[in-house]
Design a protein around this nucleic acid. Structure first.
Lengths: 141, 141
DNA sequence: GAAGATTGTAAGGTAAACCTAACACTTTGT
DNA sequence: ACAAAGTGTTAGGTTTACCTTACAATCTTC
């Protein structure tokens, strides 16, 4: 019934996303801080960062801030974008409260297909532009 | 940024769902056949079935068909329902082709919140009832 | 320029979910 | 009824992603 794919594991995508958020905020981020953010041990983060380095997604030297390589930046942007497409869709169209929208987005962002995301973008856009008419349809029944 | 839950692993839910489908079709299902359906070794299926038995979700004796306990039936129905809510939503609202809709549903069914599913049900329903008016809105721009 | 705090990493461990190979048991077909 | 085919289980292995403990390296602050 189902099947599997995945090039970057959902875990590594989470690390990358958090690194990207620090990058957006222009906040230097070290391994220990990342561990705190993700609620994961420093040791596990250390391992994960090695993987990201070996895949040329981040630059990292002990005791320095983590930074994204061009490839890492690109990948991170993709994950981050997915998160927001989902979150917006859940909030704007399905009227899910922000926090719950975000929690769902967090999990789904790693597995959803690009095609579905594209439709969501269009749909959210359409929905926002026509909110009033749609509300009317809903009420008219 | 994210967090975790899960009572029945996504893997076990897949087994349960497939058993439920056989139940719906009134097709007797043995471990070996389940292994073929899920593309997993007989050995792994054997292990998984033991877990499902020990959680009182299925009844199973070697060389006989697998059957669902009342609790297992209930759980399976929930997973199956989730799958269809998602699939319908993707197909009807987002106009995703059937197969892709199903593939996405397969993965997301294990992690999405009930609240989002409820909204999807309502939305799909609303959308189907107002398809024409909505199409018009889309075209008018 | 040390002391104390923080940060990083190595070693060794666990758990889940898979695998193959080998063997035993059961069913089927003639 | 018995050989062949199919089914199930066991043992042992792999991988991934975590963990804790302990120690090493680096900062920071007085």
């Amino acid at each position: 019934m189902c099947a599997k794919t995945q090039t970057l594991s959902s875990g590594l995508e989470d690390y990358l996303e958090e690194i990207y958020i620090a990058h957006l905020n222009e906040t230097p981020l070290k391994g220990a801080e990342l561990a705190r953010k993700l609620n994961i041990s420093r040791a596990s983060v250390s391992e994960a960062l090695s993987k990201l380095v070996s895949r040329d997604l981040i630059k990292y030297n002990s005791y320095e801030a983590i930074s994204l390589t061009p490839k890492g930046l690109e990948d991170a942007q993709k994950v981050y974008a997915k998160h927001h497409i989902l979150k917006n869709f859940f909030e704007e169209v399905l009227e899910i409260p922000a926090e719950e929208a975000s929690e769902n987005a967090c999990k789904i962002e790693h597995i959803i297909s690009q095609n579905v995301l594209d439709r969501m973008i269009n749909f959210t856009d359409f929905y926002k532009k026509n909110r009033e008419s749609i509300e009317k349809l809903k009420k008219d029944k």
